[in-house]
Each structure stands twice: as C-alpha cells, then as structure tokens.
C-alpha cells in the first residue's frame, strides 16, 4: 500500500467535500482504496515520515532564503551535482525534487536515473572554476 497516495487522496476528498462526518470519511477511505494504484517501489513508513518532515521544514526555510536573497544580492549562478539513492521509491524522489525546487535559491534541472540531481544554484560569489 502506498501511504502517500492514500493520504493524498483522502486529504483531497476531505478538503473538497468539507465534511468530516463518519459516513463521508468512510466513503473517502473506500474511494481512495478503490481508485487504481500506480506501481512503484515500496518505501517504509519511516522513510515517508522523514521525507515529509523535510518538506514541512522547507516552507520556513524558503522564506528565510527569500529574505537572504533580498538582503544580500546573489548575482552568480552555479550548477552542482548531488547524489541520490537510485533505489528510492519514485514518490520519495518526487518529494525530494519538490523540496529542492521549492526553496528559491535552488532548482533541480535534471534527474539522472543513475542517482544524480543536477541542481542549479544562486550564489553570492563567483564560483571558482
């Protein structure tokens, strides 16, 4: 069972209907279980929780980075490569890309199947080549 899929579907259902009654909750659980499941790697609940925690932490960090960009101008660009475990579940990799791109100083350019992110960064000083 894919935890993220299930949680996402149930959340969207509850927010759409805006009704937290028992019957509606049961219908939501049923619908999100019955909808066709995508295939993908399996991840443990612990991995999901730690990745979701990182996503939650990305929101305040994004605002901090935005203020940093305002106070000290970042005029230069750099491309770095970051390693990532290629056996991670696709949903987790999606969340990783989301976290990196959500923060304003960094954007993922390309995900390499062999386990690399190409990350585009704004930096304060010209990078030494």
């Amino acid at each position: 069972m894919n935890y993220l899929n299930f949680a996402l579907r149930l959340t969207i259902w509850l927010l759409l209907t805006a009704d937290f009654g028992l019957v509606n909750l049961a219908i939501g659980i049923l619908v999100s279980l019955l909808l066709p499941q995508g295939r993908g790697g399996v991840a443990t609940l612990q991995q999901w929780l730690s990745t979701l925690g990182k996503v939650a932490m990305a929101v305040p960090r994004a605002y901090i980075e935005a203020i940093e960009m305002m106070v000290r101008p970042h005029r230069h660009e750099a491309i770095v490569r970051e390693p990532v475990d290629p056996t991670r579940a696709p949903g987790l990799i999606f969340l990783d890309i989301f976290t990196i791109t959500f923060t304003p100083k960094t954007i993922v350019l390309h995900y390499d199947e062999e386990g690399w992110f190409e990350v585009h960064q704004l930096v304060e000083r010209r990078p030494e080549k």
Binding site: L15, L16, A18, T101, F102, I107, L109, H110, H120
Partner: peptide, 26 residues
C-alpha cells in the same frame, strides 16, 4: 477547506512548473 486545497495545489503546481521549465530550457 477549499482555501487550504488551493494553497497546497498552488505550491505543488508552481514548483513542478518551475522544474519543468528549468528542465526544458536547459
């Protein structure tokens, strides 16, 4: 409820659009 839904989907869509545009324009 609807505003929170809009908030979440705003963050998701804009970030993914940023990723797609970056990937396509590189």
């Amino acid at each position: 409820p609807l505003l929170v839904l809009a908030l979440i989907s705003l963050a998701l869509w804009n970030t993914i659009l940023g990723y797609v545009l970056a990937y396509c324009s590189q």
